[in-house]
């Protein structure tokens, strides 16, 4: 990995462990990683390999023990919660497997929430939220509560919420994990369109169909990066990516991932 200053995300020898009583569980073991602006990256690996942990560290939702993390040129280190909140608000968007919508807020209110914390006036942010709901195809569901929406619809609301603050990076932890395969592909298509607008996108997934639709696949194994490359190589020489996915591959992106 080159240590270029213009990487969106740069990790070097990053370690993280969880305290387990008196001992501790070492989860991320010296991760080196660089992701350029506009990349579309899948993070794969067996359950328990540390994918969510990595994504949470990247999203400043969790801290780390040692090593370095630069996000958009800013060194993270032991950052205060208040500062982290500022960076999350201005740089990051999240999509979770369990959607994490606020149950008592309507779709449009959930989408508008990030702008509340950026002090965008109520009317303006609600108008914007409706536009973003429209972009994910849910204009007619604006006034619905999360429980009145299907899983795929809830996830699209969550995506609209991640998008509304125009983040540079969107982190998605198994965004299709709770969805059927057809809905998964629809959600994936929405995410790809977002990436096409230049947003850096990291998707944790264990579904090959999903990973195959990214430009770069990082394989984690037991807290270490085991493989890093385009999807074709990630799945070995005898790639069995379904034809439908290969055919749907988009045009090459402007930012090519480092080899």
């Amino acid at each position: 990995m080159e240590g270029s200053g213009d990487a969106m995300i740069r990790l070097s020898r990053l370690n993280k462990s969880y305290p387990m009583g008196s001992s501790k569980l070492h989860v991320l073991k010296g991760i080196d990683l660089s992701i350029a602006p506009g990349e579309l990256v899948a993070i794969m690996g067996a359950s328990g390999s540390g994918k969510s942990t990595l994504l949470n560290v990247l999203g400043l939702l969790d801290g780390y023990d040692d090593g370095d993390y630069h996000l958009d040129g800013v060194r993270i280190g032991q950052m205060s919660e208040t500062k982290a909140a500022g960076l999350r608000a201005s740089l990051l968007g999240f999509v979770f497997q369990s959607f994490n919508l606020i149950p008592f807020k309507t779709a449009v209110e959930n989408v508008a929430l990030p702008l509340y914390y950026q002090e965008v006036p109520r009317r303006k942010r609600n108008k914007l939220a409706e536009e973003y709901l429209d972009r994910v195809g849910l204009a007619d569901r604006a006034g619905h509560l999360p429980r009145e929406l299907s899983g795929g619809q809830q996830q699209r609301v969550a995506i609209a919420r991640a998008l509304i603050s125009s983040p540079k990076v969107i982190l998605a932890d198994e965004p299709t994990g709770a969805l059927d395969s057809q809905t998964s592909l629809e959600v994936m298509e929405v995410l790809r369109q977002i990436n096409a607008t230049g947003v850096t996108l990291l998707i944790v997934t264990h579904e090959r169909e999903v990973a195959a639709r990214t430009r770069r696949v990082i394989r984690l194994r037991d807290g270490r990066i085991e493989g890093d490359g385009p999807p074709e190589t990630a799945f070995g020489p005898a790639s069995f990516a379904p034809a439908v996915l290969a055919q749907a591959s988009p045009a090459p992106l402007a930012a090519t991932p480092p080899a």
Binding site: E81, A85, R88, A89, F94, N100, P114, Y117, Q118, S165
Partner: peptide
């Protein structure tokens, strides 16, 4: 959980 969500979208502790 609601607090976690709010923080994820940029709410400060304050």
């Amino acid at each position: 959980k609601e607090i976690g969500i709010r923080k994820a979208v940029g709410a400060t502790p304050f």
